[in-house]
Simulated assay, not measured.
Amino acid sequence: MEFARPIARLVDELMRLPGIGPKTAQRLAFHIVRMGPDQARRLAESIVEARERTRLCSVCFNFTDADPCRLCQPGSGRDRSVICVVEEPKDVTAMERTRAFKGLYHVLHGALSPMEGVGPEALKVQELIARLGSGEVREVVLATDPNVEGEATAMYLARLIKPLGVRVTRMAHGMPVGGDLEYLDEVTLARALEGRREI
Score class of each variant (00 low, 15 high):
Ala44Asp: 06
Ala44Lys: 08
Glu45Asp: 15
Glu45Gln: 15
Ile47Gly: 02
Val48Pro: 00
Glu49Ala: 14
Glu49His: 12
Glu52Phe: 03
Glu52Val: 11
Thr54Glu: 04
Arg55Glu: 09
Leu56Ser: 08
Leu56Met: 10
Cys57Leu: 04
Cys57Arg: 04
Cys57Gln: 01
Ser58Arg: 14
Val59Cys: 04
Val59Arg: 13
Cys60Gln: 09
Phe61Pro: 07
Thr64Pro: 02
Asp65Ile: 12
Ala66Asn: 03
Pro68Asp: 10
Pro68Tyr: 08
Cys69Phe: 05
Arg70Val: 12
Arg70Leu: 11
Arg70Thr: 14
Gln73Lys: 13
Pro74Val: 11
Pro74Tyr: 03
Gly75Pro: 11
Ser76Met: 11
Gly77Leu: 09
Gly77Ile: 12
Arg78Ser: 11
Asp79Asn: 12
Val82Tyr: 00
Val86Ala: 06
Val86Asn: 01
Glu88Ser: 12
Lys90Tyr: 05
Asp91Trp: 10
Val92Trp: 07
Val92Cys: 00
Ala94His: 06
Ala100Glu: 15
Lys102Leu: 10
Leu108His: 05
Leu108Glu: 06
His109Trp: 14
His109Leu: 08
Gly110Pro: 09
Gly110Asn: 05
Ser113Asn: 15
Ser113Lys: 03
Pro114Glu: 02
Met115Phe: 09
Gly117Lys: 06
Val118Ser: 01
Pro120Met: 07
Pro120Ser: 01
Leu123Tyr: 09
Gln126Lys: 15
Ile129Ser: 01
Arg131Ala: 01
Arg131Val: 06
Glu136Gly: 01
Glu136Trp: 03
Val137Pro: 09
Arg138Thr: 10
Glu139Met: 03
Val141Glu: 00
Val141Ile: 14
Val141Ser: 00
Thr144His: 05
Glu149Val: 11
Ala152Ile: 12
Ala152Trp: 07
Ala154Asp: 06
Ala154Arg: 02
Ala158Gly: 07
Arg159Ser: 13
